[in-house]
Design a binder for these strands. Sequence first.
DNA 1: GATGAATGAGATTTCATTCAT
DNA 2: TATGAATGAAATCTCATTCAT
Lengths: 225, 225, 225, 225
Amino acid sequence: MTVEPKSPESVLAPPIAPKGLLREPPPTDRGARRRAALIAAARTVFEREGYLNTRLQDITEEAQCSAGTFYTYFKTKEEIFAALLETVQEEMLHPGVGGQVTDAATAYEVLEASNRAYLKAYRSNGKLMGLLEEVALVDPVFGELRQRRADAFVSRNARNIADLQKRGIADPDLDPDVTARALSAMVSRTAYRYFAASRGRKRVNFDKLVETMTRIWANALQITP
Amino acid sequence: MTVEPKSPESVLAPPIAPKGLLREPPPTDRGARRRAALIAAARTVFEREGYLNTRLQDITEEAQCSAGTFYTYFKTKEEIFAALLETVQEEMLHPGVGGQVTDAATAYEVLEASNRAYLKAYRSNGKLMGLLEEVALVDPVFGELRQRRADAFVSRNARNIADLQKRGIADPDLDPDVTARALSAMVSRTAYRYFAASRGRKRVNFDKLVETMTRIWANALQITP
Amino acid sequence: MTVEPKSPESVLAPPIAPKGLLREPPPTDRGARRRAALIAAARTVFEREGYLNTRLQDITEEAQCSAGTFYTYFKTKEEIFAALLETVQEEMLHPGVGGQVTDAATAYEVLEASNRAYLKAYRSNGKLMGLLEEVALVDPVFGELRQRRADAFVSRNARNIADLQKRGIADPDLDPDVTARALSAMVSRTAYRYFAASRGRKRVNFDKLVETMTRIWANALQITP
Amino acid sequence: MTVEPKSPESVLAPPIAPKGLLREPPPTDRGARRRAALIAAARTVFEREGYLNTRLQDITEEAQCSAGTFYTYFKTKEEIFAALLETVQEEMLHPGVGGQVTDAATAYEVLEASNRAYLKAYRSNGKLMGLLEEVALVDPVFGELRQRRADAFVSRNARNIADLQKRGIADPDLDPDVTARALSAMVSRTAYRYFAASRGRKRVNFDKLVETMTRIWANALQITP
DNA sequence: GATGAATGAGATTTCATTCAT
DNA sequence: TATGAATGAAATCTCATTCAT
């Protein structure tokens, strides 16, 4: 199973994605600072209150500026959320040591590394990922955006699965598309449950989580480590 | 792997759930009809507009009654949604074919029958299931309710998996809890994608879907048919 | 000069006109009363403050109801203004005894009766006419509406003038279209000055005004009484 | 009919008028250029958007300067509009041919020259004249200003008419004041319709317009050329 | 002078809920 | 019960004007 070493987590699950509808950055330093403060405030409030419950006033209060100032930088809640995503996307998309997966790795090891990277990234941004889930469900723009991204990664995974099948490594009876979607959904949804929506429930052992995800995935494809 | 034949889909994924906060049914016939009409209207509008976008006025318009009448039967949007769930829960929970799974069935066959029943039920109420997803995310009451129900079924599945492991039929290296949650999530999430959130994308062949879900599940546990 | 006896003032100047964009009347008596109260309040406030200066809150305060109630009956300031116009249009359009002008009247007498009727109507609704002037200038919808109405009457006047010219009664060197527009503008604008925009200036003798308008008009066409 | 040859159009209709509330011109060259640029921008935007629709930001954007800079030169929208009027008043008031009217001209010829000059000036600044109409209606300061100016010219015209009556040249039955106001209104309003508010309607032949205005005026006074 | 960020009063609009009829 | 009018608390958004740099 050959995988581009650049972004291994992409084998498994969709990354987040900002919107292109962002205006040019403020010319002055002060403006940049204020904009950043608003975005930080937005993150704080969004994570505390949820996207829907957040009023613009909450954000400006958190950022300690007036209501009007918000509109100097953003037009809508949607727009500041897109800006927030853009701000954090780097940490979300390159969650660690993806590049270190070597060519010599077995398919199983690649899978494990990918899952680990993905879950690690998810864990360290759990609240934000939960937020993203909320927004995607509630705002069609983000919903479609996320959909498209997810689809892209699913089809890449599907190609990989088909490739493994051709080479006799994976169960040939599985439909590659459906399987890819199902396994991606499994990982991302499980991550969501443990890291984003874990309302006061017992925490899971991270290594065990990685191992289980990987083993399920490998078993499902009938890849034996 | 023994399963209570009553609700086979419960092996795999959480059912929907009504709320206990329902008032007593209206005494008169006319009242009962009104109430039913309001619930039917609510379903129509919810499915058309989404839960959040729906205003109570939309519902009363659809039900062709006045705004005030709504309050004769329900206090809030939440309450009518709970009533709607109660109305449909029977068809959701007993999707028909469940009872046909025999004791003699192999674990694989049980799995397949369960998946088929669950997916069939999901498919025939796709919009409503999507709605439920929205509401669970948006309204904490429903979110927690759904969580609890899901947890109950996940732990039952976990027990089943542990049992299979003990009997040497399932891969002993898998953590039963995490695995149960992951595979349940996989099925329910995949169903969601294909039947609830399938915005204009190509439809999947239903039998292939059932087969793939079942095979992944069986492979994951290392159960060979 | 033959004129349809129905609405003699139409010879000279455009009538006001409401909009067709009105919703159906409220079903209950109480609703009808409230709607009427809002329109009356709107007239009061519009005439006192001007159209632009009027806030919806001013109207609801004057009508002694809450802000929300406004929206039960109207969507915008524009809409309530249209409703107001509709309410008053009858008194504005049929300002008196138009039908009493007999066939035997000379062209001069017809002119005088028309002018008198128009000016009388204008005088008794001066503030409202001024308001209409403001709205037409400020809101394109009403501007165009008024334009179209005015054009219709101007062209009728133009036909009358052309007819008089053919019959040798009016100065043949005048362009009928331009003349019709010019004389109509003269009357309506003069009325506006004296009755709508007469900010504290000395009042004019009404009969002298009628006489002068008529004489100018007659002289202009070279009709000698 | 003797007329001061300086500004013949004043016989017929009111000129535009600047305000006295203007501050001293900026000392530096750069300042003067900036101010001029702002005024030019204001004219562009006012004519494009209308006075009311124009936000100060529109003007500063058009002038390519910052919002704060506006306040270096003007205090309000009102003030920059006054400055704009001052800038254009020369071309509005001395439209060219005025001085060429000789003493030997007959009253009719004077009338025609005056009308031609006025209409020509109006035509070449149609949009601005329309703007002035809007501002006069919307802003009481400009409204009164315009009123006073108009009154001044009307009374001069009234004196002229009275003079012609005394000399037996004009119809003695006309009230000089009302007549002066009416005929002035006729010309200015007609000009407005054709040159300022001619939204897509067919254009008028300019010479015919001049001729008709003049002939109506002459006929009205019973002056035969 | 110039900049552009910051302000905040003020206006509109929505809609769940109450209440008089 | 049914009606639909009335309410009024939010929340959003605009923009003239001020001010720190």
